[in-house]
Design a protein around this nucleic acid. Structure first.
Length: 437
RNA sequence: GGAGAGGUGGCCGAGUGGUUGAAGGCGGCGGUCUUGAAAACCGCAGGGUGAAAGCCCCGGGGGUUCGAAUCCCUCCCUCUCCGCCA
Protein backbone atom coordinates (compact mmCIF):
# COMPACT_ATOMS: atom_id res chain seq x y z
CA UNK A 1 0.00 0.00 0.00
CA UNK A 2 1.36 3.35 -0.90
CA UNK A 3 -0.72 5.97 0.80
CA UNK A 4 -2.05 3.92 3.67
CA UNK A 5 -5.64 3.37 4.68
CA UNK A 6 -5.38 5.70 7.65
CA UNK A 7 -4.42 8.60 5.44
CA UNK A 8 -6.92 7.62 2.79
CA UNK A 9 -9.77 7.88 5.30
CA UNK A 10 -8.58 11.03 7.00
CA UNK A 11 -7.04 12.97 4.18
CA UNK A 12 -8.84 11.98 0.99
CA UNK A 13 -9.27 15.57 -0.13
CA UNK A 14 -5.55 16.25 -0.04
CA UNK A 15 -4.91 13.08 -2.02
CA UNK A 16 -7.48 14.06 -4.62
CA UNK A 17 -6.00 17.55 -4.89
CA UNK A 18 -2.47 16.12 -5.08
CA UNK A 19 -3.40 13.87 -7.99
CA UNK A 20 -5.02 16.71 -9.90
CA UNK A 21 -2.01 18.99 -9.34
CA UNK A 22 0.22 16.32 -10.83
CA UNK A 23 -2.08 15.96 -13.80
CA UNK A 24 -3.24 12.53 -12.70
CA UNK A 25 -6.72 11.10 -12.37
CA UNK A 26 -8.08 11.43 -8.81
CA UNK A 27 -10.67 8.69 -9.42
CA UNK A 28 -8.47 6.11 -7.70
CA UNK A 29 -8.99 7.93 -4.39
CA UNK A 30 -12.74 7.53 -4.51
CA UNK A 31 -12.50 3.96 -5.75
CA UNK A 32 -10.22 3.19 -2.83
CA UNK A 33 -12.60 4.79 -0.32
CA UNK A 34 -15.45 2.69 -1.68
CA UNK A 35 -13.46 -0.53 -1.55
CA UNK A 36 -12.19 0.25 1.92
CA UNK A 37 -15.73 0.64 3.26
CA UNK A 38 -16.80 -2.63 1.67
CA UNK A 39 -13.73 -4.36 2.98
CA UNK A 40 -14.30 -3.22 6.54
CA UNK A 41 -17.88 -4.46 6.50
CA UNK A 42 -16.85 -7.88 5.21
CA UNK A 43 -14.00 -8.06 7.65
CA UNK A 44 -16.24 -7.37 10.63
CA UNK A 45 -18.67 -10.08 9.58
CA UNK A 46 -16.01 -12.69 8.91
CA UNK A 47 -14.14 -11.91 12.13
CA UNK A 48 -17.30 -12.44 14.11
CA UNK A 49 -17.91 -15.79 12.43
CA UNK A 50 -14.32 -16.82 12.97
CA UNK A 51 -14.62 -16.13 16.67
CA UNK A 52 -17.71 -18.32 16.65
CA UNK A 53 -15.92 -21.08 14.80
CA UNK A 54 -12.93 -20.94 17.12
CA UNK A 55 -15.20 -21.30 20.14
CA UNK A 56 -17.02 -24.23 18.57
CA UNK A 57 -13.81 -26.03 17.65
CA UNK A 58 -12.47 -25.53 21.11
CA UNK A 59 -15.75 -26.93 22.44
CA UNK A 60 -15.39 -30.07 20.34
CA UNK A 61 -11.86 -30.55 21.55
CA UNK A 62 -12.90 -30.12 25.15
CA UNK A 63 -15.82 -32.52 24.73
CA UNK A 64 -13.57 -35.23 23.32
CA UNK A 65 -11.00 -34.67 26.02
CA UNK A 66 -13.81 -34.80 28.56
CA UNK A 67 -14.62 -38.34 27.45
CA UNK A 68 -17.20 -37.88 24.70
CA UNK A 69 -17.08 -40.39 21.88
CA UNK A 70 -15.41 -38.66 18.89
CA UNK A 71 -17.73 -40.64 16.61
CA UNK A 72 -20.77 -40.26 18.77
CA UNK A 73 -23.93 -38.32 18.05
CA UNK A 74 -23.09 -35.50 20.44
CA UNK A 75 -19.83 -34.61 18.73
CA UNK A 76 -21.31 -35.13 15.28
CA UNK A 77 -23.97 -32.57 16.03
CA UNK A 78 -21.43 -30.01 17.22
CA UNK A 79 -19.32 -30.67 14.17
CA UNK A 80 -22.21 -30.22 11.82
CA UNK A 81 -23.12 -26.86 13.27
CA UNK A 82 -19.55 -25.68 12.87
CA UNK A 83 -19.41 -26.83 9.27
CA UNK A 84 -22.08 -24.35 8.30
CA UNK A 85 -20.16 -21.49 9.89
CA UNK A 86 -16.97 -22.55 8.16
CA UNK A 87 -18.71 -22.64 4.82
CA UNK A 88 -20.02 -19.11 5.32
CA UNK A 89 -16.55 -17.93 6.32
CA UNK A 90 -15.10 -19.41 3.14
CA UNK A 91 -17.62 -17.46 1.07
CA UNK A 92 -16.83 -14.19 2.81
CA UNK A 93 -13.15 -14.88 2.52
CA UNK A 94 -13.41 -15.31 -1.23
CA UNK A 95 -15.18 -12.01 -1.64
CA UNK A 96 -12.79 -10.32 0.76
CA UNK A 97 -9.85 -11.55 -1.23
CA UNK A 98 -11.07 -10.07 -4.47
CA UNK A 99 -11.92 -6.77 -2.76
CA UNK A 100 -8.48 -6.58 -1.19
CA UNK A 101 -6.74 -7.33 -4.45
CA UNK A 102 -8.72 -4.55 -6.10
CA UNK A 103 -8.05 -2.16 -3.23
CA UNK A 104 -4.34 -2.80 -3.32
CA UNK A 105 -4.26 -2.23 -7.06
CA UNK A 106 -6.11 1.06 -6.69
CA UNK A 107 -3.99 2.27 -3.78
CA UNK A 108 -0.82 1.74 -5.81
CA UNK A 109 -2.21 4.17 -8.34
CA UNK A 110 -2.85 7.05 -5.97
CA UNK A 111 -0.01 9.56 -6.49
CA UNK A 112 2.08 10.89 -3.63
CA UNK A 113 0.86 14.48 -3.15
CA UNK A 114 3.59 17.10 -3.54
CA UNK A 115 4.64 19.10 -0.50
CA UNK A 116 2.37 22.09 0.05
CA UNK A 117 5.04 24.64 -0.86
CA UNK A 118 5.76 23.07 -4.25
CA UNK A 119 4.58 25.34 -7.06
CA UNK A 120 1.50 24.04 -8.85
CA UNK A 121 1.59 23.89 -12.62
CA UNK A 122 3.63 22.76 -15.60
CA UNK A 123 7.13 23.54 -16.79
CA UNK A 124 6.60 27.32 -16.65
CA UNK A 125 5.95 26.97 -12.93
CA UNK A 126 9.36 25.41 -12.26
CA UNK A 127 11.55 27.60 -10.09
CA UNK A 128 15.27 28.11 -10.68
CA UNK A 129 16.51 28.11 -7.10
CA UNK A 130 20.14 29.00 -7.83
CA UNK A 131 22.79 28.83 -10.51
CA UNK A 132 26.51 28.15 -10.26
CA UNK A 133 29.30 29.03 -12.66
CA UNK A 134 29.42 30.96 -15.90
CA UNK A 135 27.66 29.22 -18.82
CA UNK A 136 30.16 28.86 -21.68
CA UNK A 137 29.32 30.64 -24.91
CA UNK A 138 28.50 28.78 -28.08
CA UNK A 139 30.57 31.21 -30.17
CA UNK A 140 33.91 31.77 -28.49
CA UNK A 141 36.38 34.55 -29.18
CA UNK A 142 39.75 33.31 -30.32
CA UNK A 143 43.13 34.93 -30.88
CA UNK A 144 43.30 38.15 -32.86
CA UNK A 145 39.63 38.81 -33.31
CA UNK A 146 38.86 35.39 -34.75
CA UNK A 147 36.16 33.25 -33.25
CA UNK A 148 35.22 29.60 -33.20
CA UNK A 149 32.00 27.70 -32.80
CA UNK A 150 31.55 24.94 -30.30
CA UNK A 151 30.52 21.61 -31.81
CA UNK A 152 27.91 19.29 -30.35
CA UNK A 153 29.27 16.49 -28.15
CA UNK A 154 28.77 13.67 -30.63
CA UNK A 155 30.96 15.41 -33.17
CA UNK A 156 33.68 16.06 -30.62
CA UNK A 157 33.57 12.50 -29.33
CA UNK A 158 33.39 10.74 -32.68
CA UNK A 159 36.23 12.85 -34.06
CA UNK A 160 38.42 11.91 -31.10
CA UNK A 161 37.53 8.23 -31.36
CA UNK A 162 35.85 8.30 -27.96
CA UNK A 163 32.41 7.25 -29.13
CA UNK A 164 31.15 4.91 -31.84
CA UNK A 165 27.39 5.21 -32.04
CA UNK A 166 27.24 3.22 -35.28
CA UNK A 167 28.94 0.28 -33.59
CA UNK A 168 26.49 0.43 -30.68
CA UNK A 169 23.58 0.47 -33.10
CA UNK A 170 24.99 -2.51 -35.00
CA UNK A 171 25.75 -4.60 -31.95
CA UNK A 172 22.60 -3.80 -30.00
CA UNK A 173 20.44 -1.07 -31.47
CA UNK A 174 20.17 2.67 -31.60
CA UNK A 175 20.39 4.29 -28.22
CA UNK A 176 23.06 1.93 -26.93
CA UNK A 177 26.29 3.94 -27.06
CA UNK A 178 29.63 2.23 -27.59
CA UNK A 179 32.35 4.19 -25.80
CA UNK A 180 35.92 3.52 -26.84
CA UNK A 181 39.47 4.52 -25.99
CA UNK A 182 39.52 7.76 -23.97
CA UNK A 183 35.72 7.74 -24.08
CA UNK A 184 35.57 4.42 -22.26
CA UNK A 185 38.25 5.54 -19.83
CA UNK A 186 36.29 8.72 -19.16
CA UNK A 187 33.26 6.67 -18.11
CA UNK A 188 35.38 4.66 -15.71
CA UNK A 189 37.07 7.78 -14.38
CA UNK A 190 33.81 9.58 -13.68
CA UNK A 191 32.30 6.61 -11.88
CA UNK A 192 35.40 6.34 -9.73
CA UNK A 193 35.50 10.07 -9.04
CA UNK A 194 31.85 10.25 -8.00
CA UNK A 195 31.98 7.17 -5.79
CA UNK A 196 35.20 8.34 -4.19
CA UNK A 197 33.87 11.77 -3.27
CA UNK A 198 30.62 10.40 -1.89
CA UNK A 199 32.26 7.71 0.20
CA UNK A 200 35.29 9.67 1.41
CA UNK A 201 33.84 13.15 1.81
CA UNK A 202 30.10 12.61 2.29
CA UNK A 203 30.16 9.39 4.30
CA UNK A 204 28.03 7.19 2.07
CA UNK A 205 28.38 3.42 2.22
CA UNK A 206 29.19 2.07 -1.23
CA UNK A 207 26.91 -0.55 -2.75
CA UNK A 208 27.42 -2.48 -5.96
CA UNK A 209 23.91 -3.80 -6.61
CA UNK A 210 22.38 -6.33 -8.99
CA UNK A 211 21.40 -4.77 -12.30
CA UNK A 212 18.24 -6.90 -12.43
CA UNK A 213 15.40 -6.93 -9.89
CA UNK A 214 12.23 -8.89 -9.20
CA UNK A 215 8.70 -7.52 -9.44
CA UNK A 216 8.34 -6.94 -5.69
CA UNK A 217 11.33 -4.58 -5.73
CA UNK A 218 10.06 -2.73 -8.79
CA UNK A 219 6.73 -2.28 -7.06
CA UNK A 220 8.40 -1.12 -3.87
CA UNK A 221 10.02 1.95 -5.35
CA UNK A 222 7.02 2.65 -7.59
CA UNK A 223 8.24 1.62 -11.04
CA UNK A 224 5.30 -0.78 -11.07
CA UNK A 225 2.63 0.03 -12.00
CA UNK A 226 3.38 3.60 -13.06
CA UNK A 227 6.51 3.14 -15.12
CA UNK A 228 6.33 -0.52 -16.00
CA UNK A 229 6.40 0.18 -19.73
CA UNK A 230 9.71 2.05 -19.32
CA UNK A 231 11.53 -1.04 -18.08
CA UNK A 232 13.18 -3.85 -19.99
CA UNK A 233 11.68 -7.14 -18.89
CA UNK A 234 13.39 -10.52 -18.72
CA UNK A 235 10.15 -12.36 -19.14
CA UNK A 236 11.45 -15.89 -18.86
CA UNK A 237 12.69 -15.26 -15.35
CA UNK A 238 10.17 -12.61 -14.35
CA UNK A 239 12.87 -9.98 -13.78
CA UNK A 240 13.43 -6.36 -14.75
CA UNK A 241 16.59 -4.54 -15.84
CA UNK A 242 17.07 -1.68 -13.39
CA UNK A 243 16.17 1.80 -14.66
CA UNK A 244 18.21 3.22 -11.76
CA UNK A 245 20.16 1.87 -8.78
CA UNK A 246 17.44 3.41 -6.64
CA UNK A 247 15.41 0.24 -7.14
CA UNK A 248 17.81 -2.43 -5.84
CA UNK A 249 19.35 -0.15 -3.22
CA UNK A 250 16.15 1.20 -1.63
CA UNK A 251 14.77 -2.33 -1.48
CA UNK A 252 17.70 -3.48 0.64
CA UNK A 253 15.67 -2.72 3.75
CA UNK A 254 12.26 -3.86 2.50
CA UNK A 255 10.20 -5.43 5.32
CA UNK A 256 12.66 -4.39 8.00
CA UNK A 257 12.34 -2.48 11.26
CA UNK A 258 15.44 -0.37 11.85
CA UNK A 259 16.69 0.83 15.21
CA UNK A 260 16.82 4.61 15.63
CA UNK A 261 20.57 4.72 16.09
CA UNK A 262 21.07 3.25 12.63
CA UNK A 263 19.45 6.27 10.97
CA UNK A 264 20.18 7.93 8.71
CA UNK A 265 21.39 5.12 6.46
CA UNK A 266 23.06 6.50 3.36
CA UNK A 267 24.14 4.42 0.39
CA UNK A 268 25.81 5.34 -2.86
CA UNK A 269 25.76 2.92 -5.76
CA UNK A 270 26.93 2.75 -9.31
CA UNK A 271 24.80 0.85 -11.80
CA UNK A 272 24.06 0.80 -15.46
CA UNK A 273 20.53 2.09 -16.11
CA UNK A 274 18.19 0.69 -18.73
CA UNK A 275 15.23 2.62 -20.02
CA UNK A 276 13.02 1.86 -22.98
CA UNK A 277 12.09 5.55 -23.42
CA UNK A 278 8.76 4.44 -24.81
CA UNK A 279 6.85 7.41 -26.09
CA UNK A 280 9.99 9.48 -26.59
CA UNK A 281 10.63 8.32 -30.14
CA UNK A 282 12.05 11.12 -32.26
CA UNK A 283 13.17 13.14 -29.23
CA UNK A 284 16.88 13.86 -28.80
CA UNK A 285 17.82 11.33 -31.45
CA UNK A 286 21.31 12.70 -31.94
CA UNK A 287 24.15 12.11 -29.57
CA UNK A 288 23.82 10.66 -26.10
CA UNK A 289 21.22 12.91 -24.51
CA UNK A 290 18.53 10.25 -24.49
CA UNK A 291 19.78 6.67 -24.58
CA UNK A 292 18.47 3.24 -23.60
CA UNK A 293 21.48 2.41 -21.48
CA UNK A 294 23.53 4.82 -19.43
CA UNK A 295 25.59 4.79 -16.28
CA UNK A 296 24.72 6.50 -13.06
CA UNK A 297 25.94 6.89 -9.51
CA UNK A 298 22.93 7.11 -7.22
CA UNK A 299 22.60 8.27 -3.63
CA UNK A 300 19.88 6.72 -1.45
CA UNK A 301 18.98 7.78 2.07
CA UNK A 302 16.74 6.37 4.79
CA UNK A 303 15.75 9.10 7.24
CA UNK A 304 13.73 9.84 10.32
CA UNK A 305 10.59 11.63 9.11
CA UNK A 306 11.47 14.88 10.84
CA UNK A 307 14.89 14.91 9.15
CA UNK A 308 13.91 14.24 5.55
CA UNK A 309 13.39 17.86 4.58
CA UNK A 310 16.91 18.88 5.57
CA UNK A 311 18.27 15.67 4.07
CA UNK A 312 16.90 16.63 0.67
CA UNK A 313 18.86 19.90 0.73
CA UNK A 314 21.99 18.09 1.86
CA UNK A 315 21.71 15.41 -0.85
CA UNK A 316 21.27 18.11 -3.46
CA UNK A 317 24.45 19.72 -2.22
CA UNK A 318 26.29 16.39 -2.48
CA UNK A 319 25.38 16.21 -6.16
CA UNK A 320 26.28 19.87 -6.76
CA UNK A 321 29.78 19.34 -5.41
CA UNK A 322 30.51 17.00 -8.31
CA UNK A 323 29.56 19.55 -10.94
CA UNK A 324 31.59 22.20 -9.16
CA UNK A 325 34.67 19.96 -9.12
CA UNK A 326 34.20 19.29 -12.80
CA UNK A 327 33.87 23.02 -13.41
CA UNK A 328 30.51 22.73 -15.13
CA UNK A 329 27.99 25.56 -14.86
CA UNK A 330 24.62 24.37 -13.62
CA UNK A 331 21.33 25.46 -12.14
CA UNK A 332 19.12 23.93 -9.48
CA UNK A 333 15.45 23.72 -10.41
CA UNK A 334 12.58 23.06 -8.02
CA UNK A 335 10.10 21.06 -10.08
CA UNK A 336 6.49 22.17 -10.24
CA UNK A 337 3.80 19.58 -9.49
CA UNK A 338 3.07 18.83 -13.12
CA UNK A 339 6.72 18.05 -13.85
CA UNK A 340 7.17 15.63 -10.95
CA UNK A 341 6.84 11.88 -10.93
CA UNK A 342 3.90 10.29 -9.16
CA UNK A 343 5.99 9.02 -6.25
CA UNK A 344 7.89 12.18 -5.26
CA UNK A 345 6.86 14.80 -2.71
CA UNK A 346 9.57 17.30 -3.62
CA UNK A 347 12.20 17.20 -6.36
CA UNK A 348 15.20 19.29 -7.37
CA UNK A 349 16.68 18.79 -10.82
CA UNK A 350 20.29 19.72 -11.50
CA UNK A 351 20.73 21.01 -15.03
CA UNK A 352 24.15 21.50 -16.57
CA UNK A 353 24.85 23.93 -19.40
CA UNK A 354 25.91 22.33 -22.67
CA UNK A 355 27.21 25.08 -24.97
CA UNK A 356 27.41 22.86 -28.08
CA UNK A 357 23.72 22.06 -28.22
CA UNK A 358 22.97 25.25 -26.27
CA UNK A 359 20.70 23.58 -23.75
CA UNK A 360 20.44 22.92 -20.04
CA UNK A 361 20.73 19.15 -19.53
CA UNK A 362 19.19 17.32 -16.61
CA UNK A 363 22.01 15.33 -15.01
CA UNK A 364 20.51 14.76 -11.59
CA UNK A 365 17.15 14.50 -9.93
CA UNK A 366 17.05 14.60 -6.15
CA UNK A 367 13.80 13.71 -4.43
CA UNK A 368 12.15 13.30 -1.07
CA UNK A 369 9.56 10.52 -1.21
CA UNK A 370 8.53 11.01 2.41
CA UNK A 371 6.74 7.82 3.53
CA UNK A 372 5.38 6.85 0.11
CA UNK A 373 8.03 4.36 -0.97
CA UNK A 374 8.73 3.22 2.57
CA UNK A 375 5.09 2.28 3.04
CA UNK A 376 5.07 0.30 -0.17
CA UNK A 377 8.24 -1.46 0.97
CA UNK A 378 7.17 -1.68 4.61
CA UNK A 379 10.37 -0.10 5.91
CA UNK A 380 9.95 1.04 9.49
CA UNK A 381 12.01 2.26 12.41
CA UNK A 382 11.70 2.49 16.17
CA UNK A 383 12.21 5.83 17.90
CA UNK A 384 13.45 3.98 20.95
CA UNK A 385 13.69 0.39 22.09
CA UNK A 386 10.21 -1.00 22.65
CA UNK A 387 8.42 1.82 20.81
CA UNK A 388 5.85 1.13 18.10
CA UNK A 389 7.42 0.85 14.66
CA UNK A 390 6.80 3.84 12.38
CA UNK A 391 7.21 4.22 8.63
CA UNK A 392 10.43 6.08 7.82
CA UNK A 393 11.25 8.41 4.94
CA UNK A 394 13.29 7.64 1.83
CA UNK A 395 15.14 9.97 -0.52
CA UNK A 396 17.40 9.55 -3.47
CA UNK A 397 19.30 11.56 -6.01
CA UNK A 398 21.64 11.07 -8.91
CA UNK A 399 25.18 11.91 -8.22
CA UNK A 400 25.45 11.93 -11.21
CA UNK A 401 24.07 10.44 -14.43
CA UNK A 402 26.98 9.98 -16.80
CA UNK A 403 25.77 10.29 -20.38
CA UNK A 404 24.61 13.89 -20.18
CA UNK A 405 27.46 14.89 -17.89
CA UNK A 406 29.84 13.53 -20.51
CA UNK A 407 28.00 15.46 -23.21
CA UNK A 408 28.44 18.69 -21.26
CA UNK A 409 32.11 17.94 -20.56
CA UNK A 410 32.79 17.34 -24.24
CA UNK A 411 31.10 20.56 -25.23
CA UNK A 412 32.66 22.70 -22.50
CA UNK A 413 36.22 21.33 -22.59
CA UNK A 414 36.66 21.02 -26.36
CA UNK A 415 39.46 23.21 -27.72
CA UNK A 416 39.47 25.22 -30.97
CA UNK A 417 42.01 22.74 -32.44
CA UNK A 418 39.67 19.79 -31.90
CA UNK A 419 41.42 18.36 -28.86
CA UNK A 420 39.76 17.89 -25.48
CA UNK A 421 41.16 19.24 -22.25
CA UNK A 422 40.69 16.93 -19.29
CA UNK A 423 39.23 18.69 -16.21
CA UNK A 424 41.83 18.88 -13.43
CA UNK A 425 39.98 16.55 -11.04
CA UNK A 426 39.89 13.86 -13.69
CA UNK A 427 43.58 13.98 -14.67
CA UNK A 428 44.72 11.56 -11.95
CA UNK A 429 41.96 9.17 -13.01
CA UNK A 430 42.62 9.51 -16.73
CA UNK A 431 46.39 9.68 -16.70
CA UNK A 432 46.43 12.45 -19.32
CA UNK A 433 45.67 16.16 -19.44
CA UNK A 434 44.70 16.37 -23.08
CA UNK A 435 42.87 14.00 -25.35
CA UNK A 436 43.82 14.12 -29.00
CA UNK A 437 43.15 11.93 -31.98
C1' G B 1 21.02 -28.51 -14.64
C1' G B 2 20.76 -33.39 -11.26
C1' A B 3 20.36 -35.56 -6.04
C1' G B 4 19.44 -34.67 -0.96
C1' A B 5 18.41 -31.62 3.70
C1' G B 6 15.95 -27.60 5.66
C1' G B 7 12.95 -22.84 6.27
C1' U B 8 9.42 -21.44 13.62
C1' G B 9 9.90 -14.80 17.50
C1' G B 10 16.42 -10.10 17.32
C1' C B 11 19.47 -14.91 17.21
C1' C B 12 19.72 -20.34 18.37
C1' G B 13 16.21 -24.06 18.99
C1' A B 14 11.64 -27.48 20.78
C1' G B 15 6.98 -28.55 18.82
C1' U B 16 2.04 -34.47 19.96
C1' G B 17 -3.81 -31.98 14.51
C1' G B 18 -7.29 -29.47 19.72
C1' U B 19 -6.09 -22.50 25.17
C1' U B 20 1.10 -23.36 21.40
C1' G B 21 1.30 -16.60 19.51
C1' A B 22 4.20 -20.71 20.22
C1' A B 23 8.74 -24.55 25.52
C1' G B 24 13.88 -23.71 26.49
C1' G B 25 18.44 -20.99 25.78
C1' C B 26 21.13 -16.56 24.25
C1' G B 27 20.66 -11.54 23.49
C1' G B 28 17.56 -6.91 25.03
C1' C B 29 14.98 -3.80 28.74
C1' G B 30 13.53 -2.90 34.06
C1' G B 31 14.45 -4.20 39.14
C1' U B 32 16.87 -6.67 43.74
C1' C B 33 21.84 -7.18 45.51
C1' U B 34 26.78 -4.16 45.00
C1' U B 35 30.79 1.72 46.38
C1' G B 36 30.42 0.53 40.96
C1' A B 37 30.48 -3.59 37.74
C1' A B 38 30.17 -8.84 37.04
C1' A B 39 27.56 -13.02 38.84
C1' A B 40 22.99 -14.58 40.90
C1' C B 41 17.79 -13.90 41.47
C1' C B 42 12.90 -11.56 40.12
C1' G B 43 10.07 -9.21 36.42
C1' C B 44 8.97 -7.13 31.27
C1' A B 45 9.19 -7.65 26.28
C1' G B 46 6.85 -9.92 18.51
C1' G B 47 3.98 -7.77 14.25
C1' G B 48 -0.71 -6.28 11.69
C1' U B 49 -5.86 -4.68 12.07
C1' G B 50 -9.64 -2.73 15.19
C1' A B 51 -12.61 2.23 19.65
C1' A B 52 -12.75 -2.44 22.05
C1' A B 53 -13.97 -7.51 22.26
C1' G B 54 -11.94 -10.03 18.75
C1' C B 55 -9.53 -11.54 14.22
C1' C B 56 -4.96 -12.56 11.39
C1' C B 57 0.44 -13.75 11.11
C1' C B 58 5.32 -20.19 12.44
C1' G B 59 9.02 -18.66 4.02
C1' G B 60 4.64 -17.26 -0.05
C1' G B 61 0.07 -19.21 -2.12
C1' G B 62 -3.66 -23.08 -2.29
C1' G B 63 -6.04 -27.57 -0.17
C1' U B 64 -7.84 -31.44 3.59
C1' U B 65 -10.41 -30.87 8.55
C1' C B 66 -15.33 -28.98 13.23
C1' G B 67 -10.15 -27.37 14.20
C1' A B 68 -3.40 -26.89 10.85
C1' A B 69 3.12 -24.40 12.89
C1' U B 70 1.83 -29.72 12.82
C1' C B 71 -1.20 -33.59 7.03
C1' C B 72 -1.33 -32.80 1.27
C1' C B 73 -0.11 -29.77 -3.31
C1' U B 74 2.65 -25.81 -5.40
C1' C B 75 6.08 -21.82 -5.68
C1' C B 76 10.27 -19.23 -3.47
C1' C B 77 14.67 -19.21 -0.62
C1' U B 78 18.98 -21.34 2.17
C1' C B 79 22.54 -25.33 2.89
C1' U B 80 25.35 -30.02 1.23
C1' C B 81 27.04 -33.17 -2.86
C1' C B 82 27.59 -33.82 -8.31
C1' G B 83 27.79 -31.50 -13.21
C1' C B 84 28.76 -26.97 -16.00
C1' C B 85 31.11 -22.29 -15.92
C1' A B 86 33.39 -16.12 -15.50
Amino acid sequence: MSVGLQRLREDAERLRRGAIDKGEDPAAVDAALRLDRRRRALLGESDRLKAQRNDASRGIGDAIKGGADPRGAEVAELRERSTGVSRRIAELERELQSIEAELEEVLLRIPNPADLDVPVGGEQANVVVRTWGEPARHMEDGQGGSSWERRPHWQVAEALGMLDLAAGAKVTGSGFPMYRAAGAALQRALIDLFLSIHTREHGFVEIWPPAVVNAASARGTGQIPDKEHQMYVVERDDLYLVPTAEVPVTNIHRDEILDAERLPIRYVAYSPCFRREAGAAGKDTRGILRVHQFDKVEMVSFERPEASGAALEWLTGCAEVLLQRLGLAYRVVLLATGEMGVTQARTYDLEVWAPGVERWLEVSSVSNFRDYQARRMNIRWRREPGAKPEILHTLNGSGLALARTVAALLEVYQQPDGTLRVPDVLCPHMGVELIRR
